[in-house]
């Protein structure tokens, strides 16, 4: 084993990273209303209790609608921008791409309040739709990051070869480019879905009277007796995100393997 000291440190660091996720299921199955140690006993009643809360059901439904719409829209916008930035050169490209990628570093509260001001100023009613608009904004930079690497690893002569063999620009896109970046598209859909599902502040500001899953969770933190159910819900959510991320990672790697590119790391 190489890097002895570093390895121990890195493993400790991983434990630090995973600490909350490891503790989460402990309380989800703990037979006590108070979220504290020591644990008292095993139960699955918190999971059962989730089904009895109509507000939760509505929040899940809203969140799913938002996450699906936002991920499809963001990925579509991402395909356009990623293709444009990897294939073409145009004046002010840096500035334009910089603006599009800005939400990656911009605090979400800034995005949220600025959108809120404009939407209210325009007289738009806050609803699921306004949350979707905000989520597309913050998901798009992630989709571009993923899709750019997919488009980048695409050898330009593949397109030319298809064209040379008699295909048109459109059929070349359908037969060659699309299949080769498909893993990137799937991974980008899954990532934006995960981001949108988990996003709190924008939904908090822009959802109006509608409630999304994170907004619901946040509101439940105020009621100590509701917290165990949230732990159960969280366990399911975490499990789902890990599953989605694993699938996304699988597709991202398959995409790289297909185009024969070297793996250069994760999503970010």
């Amino acid at each position: 084993m190489k890097g002895g000291g570093f390895r121990i440190y890195a493993i400790c660091y991983l434990i630090f990273l995973y600490a909350p996720i490891i503790i989460l299921p402990l309380f989800a199955f703990n037979d006590a209303t108070v979220i504290a140690f020591p644990l008292s006993g095993f139960t699955t009643k918190w999971f059962a209790e989730m089904t009895t809360q109509p507000a939760l059901g509505q929040a899940v439904k809203n969140s799913l609608i938002i996450a699906v719409s936002a991920s499809v829209l963001a990925t579509t916008l991402g395909v356009f921008a990623a293709r444009a930035s990897t294939r073409y050169d145009f004046p002010f490209k840096g500035g334009i791409m910089g603006l599009i990628m800005l939400p990656l570093v911009l605090p979400e509260i800034i995005v949220a309040v600025s959108l809120l001001v404009v939407l209210l100023g325009l007289g738009v009613n806050l609803s699921i739709l306004t949350v979707i608009l905000g989520h597309v904004l913050i998901c798009t930079p992630f989709t571009i990051a993923i899709l750019s690497s997919a488009f980048q690893s695409l050898d330009r002569s593949l397109e030319e070869a298809a064209y040379d063999l008699g295909e048109t620009a459109v059929s070349t896109f359908r037969l060659i480019i699309l299949p080769l970046v498909m893993p990137g598209i799937i991974s980008s859909l899954l990532i934006s879905f995960t981001i949108s599902l988990d996003e709190f502040i924008i939904a908090f500001f822009l959802a109006g009277t509608e409630v999304t899953l994170p907004v619901y969770i946040f509101s439940q933190f105020r009621f100590p007796q509701a917290v165990p159910v949230i732990m159960a819900l969280g366990t399911i959510l975490v499990g789902m995100s890990i599953l989605l991320l694993t699938i996304a990672e699988y597709f991202r790697r398959r995409g790289l393997a297909r185009s024969g590119a070297k793996d250069t790391g994760g999503f970010l």
């Binding site: 909350p20 995960t194 988990d198 709190f200 969770i217 959510l237 975490v238 995100s241």
Partner: peptide, 8 residues
Amino acid sequence: PFWTSYLI
């Protein structure tokens, strides 16, 4: 861990 429910 970065991608799992921030609130929770």
